[in-house]
Design a protein around this nucleic acid. Structure first.
Lengths: 164, 164
DNA sequence: TCTTGACTTGTTATTACATAACATGGGATG
DNA sequence: CATCCCATGTTATGTAATAACAAGTCAAGA
């Protein structure tokens, strides 16, 4: 058992135990302010995510919860994860999983998507400056960007108009 | 015309028929250059996406293909969509769908994720300038951003090191 | 103390999304 | 015309997510 592998440091090495417990303390404070409860499942779920320090699928989280004596059914994990996300203690990566035609196939583009939550229409815009800033931010951490997903969810001008 | 990009007009009313047929023509040109074939299913799939002008799930596309006499099984749609994406004629929105603990729950942040494809570790970085550029780009089209997903897939410094 | 009601956790069952593995048939190439 | 690649279709299965219901906990007020 050496330090380097099983429980990751983020990209930069750091005191993982400290960053976990700090996050847990902050979580408790935050929740008590909001009148929400960090129950055993929820707490354990957060710990699992913090220990892993990487993205985990809901079913992977569920397996660990089950090993720890919690329920074995999907809703157990989904509910706990949903709770954490709602209260800003965890993030959900990715959403839609859908397809849209590319409107400018000729150009070698790095598209940014604007998705209207009302009408589902998708605008594909070429925003090199967004990409540029992303590259810069990543480079600052020694991270090499190969592909990037940039999707904005909101209201298109037409739907925004219609709801005033 | 200002360059090849009238990208900005996606949400604005425009001539759908024209923009569809233009995309189809471009698709054919591009594919013939690459020696790939725009077969009936593939062509119809592209048409469906172009007509919809919005993001569609694979099964929704599949339903339409089936109505038009093509196969009714999921791989029919997935293969055609995959082909279009490979050749730059369509985009896939979103992939992973996983969870990660939030490391800075206190801050009112707009996180940007750096996901290493080797070790799955996720760094959460606060990149206001990326967000800023996104807001600017969206605003230029009259689009109101409510939430944005910004995820970069690539190599973290540790894994990049290990593969040289 | 007892009851009420909101909330949490657990279950079963089902729906949605995606791919593996295999069979068939057409069309270009030699 | 034989061959091979590729496209299309199938069946079957795997993975992700949610709906609907049952039961337990616990604090607040009668």
């Amino acid at each position: 058992m050496h330090g380097k592998s099983d429980h990751g440091e983020a990209f930069a090495p750091h005191d993982h135990a400290a960053c976990q417990s700090r996050a847990l303390v902050e979580a408790e404070e935050r929740l008590s302010r909001e009148g929400a409860r960090l129950t055993p499942v929820r707490r354990r779920t957060l710990e699992i995510l913090l220990e892993a320090h990487r993205a985990m699928g809901a079913y992977e989280v569920l397996d660990r919860l089950a090993d720890d004596g919690f329920g074995r059914q999907p809703p157990v994990a989904y509910r706990a994860l949903e709770f954490l996300v709602e209260h800003g203690l965890a993030h959900r990566l990715q959403r839609l999983n859908a397809f849209a035609a590319c409107l400018h196939p000729g150009e070698d583009h790095a598209p940014v998507f604007l998705i209207c939550r009302e009408c589902d229409k998708v605008a594909e815009t070429n925003a090199p400056r967004v990409r540029g800033e992303l590259q810069a931010a990543a480079g600052g951490q020694g991270f090499t960007v190969e592909r990037a997903t940039i999707e904005a969810l909101g209201l298109c001008p037409v739907c925004a108009e219609g709801r005033e």
